[in-house]
Amino acid sequence: MSKRILVVDDAPIIRLMLSDILKFNNYEVVGEGCNGQEGVDKYKELKPDLVTMDIVMPEKDGIQAMTEILEFDKNAKVVMVTAIDQRESLMKAIRAGATDYIIKPFEQDRVLSAIKKAFGEA
C-alpha cells in the first residue's frame, strides 16, 4: 500500500511540483494545505504517514505548525521544505522535530532521498 503524504506550502506551484514528484514515485498525496493552520487541520483530519511543510507561510509558519502536529502525534514525520538555507534556522527545525529538510529550489532526487530517509527506506 502506498505511503500517504500531506503537502503544505503557500505556493500552488510548489505543491504541484512536489505532488508530481511524489505521485510519479508511487506515493499517495492525500491532501494539500496552503498555510500552517491548514496544515495542522488537515493533518488531524487525514492522519497522513508524512507531511512536507514549508517554513515561511502566512497565518502560521511551518515551525509552529510542525510543533502543533507533533503535540497531536508525537510520531509524526515532518520534512521541512524551505528556501532559507541558514544553519541556525535549519537546526531550529530539526530540534523542533523535523525529520529532514529540503532546500528550494529542489531536485527530484533530493525530495525522494528525504522522503525515503523519513520512512526508513534505503
Binding site: D10, A11, P12, I13, I14, V56, T82, A83, I84, K104
Partner: peptide, 12 residues
C-alpha cells in the same frame, strides 16, 4: 504563484 515562489527563493 510562480512569481511568488521566484520572489521567495531569491529573497531567501
Amino acid at each position: 504563484s510562480a512569481v511568488q515562489e521566484v520572489g521567495n527563493i531569491l529573497a531567501s
